[in-house]
Amino acid sequence: MSKIHVTTSVNGDPTEFLCDADETLLDALRDRLGMTGSKEGCGTGDCGACSVTVDGRLVCSCLMLGAEAEGREIGTIEGMAKGDQLHPLQRKFIEHAALQCGICTPGLLVAAKSLLENNPDPTEEETRYWLAGNLCRCTGYDKIIRAVLDAAQEMREAS
């Protein structure tokens, strides 16, 4: 089985990789590019731990082939902080203790960032529905929702 050569952009970096035709973008990120921040919790689009953005659109990287990344712009958790400057959501997750084990955290952060880009002032209910595809088993979501709403407020005030 010959591999496919993919030229893409990951977090703004020009990136190339070789992958099998049936390989998911998640596997390509983790196994070909060593970017293990995106997690596999289910492999079937039910948990959101592998959330990334493709051309700015939130997707599950387990539900997309690596080959489909050709020419796209991929955004992952590894690109969320700018150097040592955490994104406000990252800071608020730490401040609010919005993570316990931390396995769902990268996917939740990527999804929450996408939410705030689409809707800078979400209600609690809008936040809960937007994030319904990101399973967390530790926290009961309470502190996660608080962290997202607090980050949204801070980002609104800063802009």
Binding site: G45, D46, S51, V59, C60, M64, A111, G133
Partner: peptide, 9 residues
């Protein structure tokens, strides 16, 4: 259909 993520696809 599915989650926000699935909606993107």
């Amino acid at each position: 259909i599915g989650s926000t993520q699935v909606q993107g696809r």
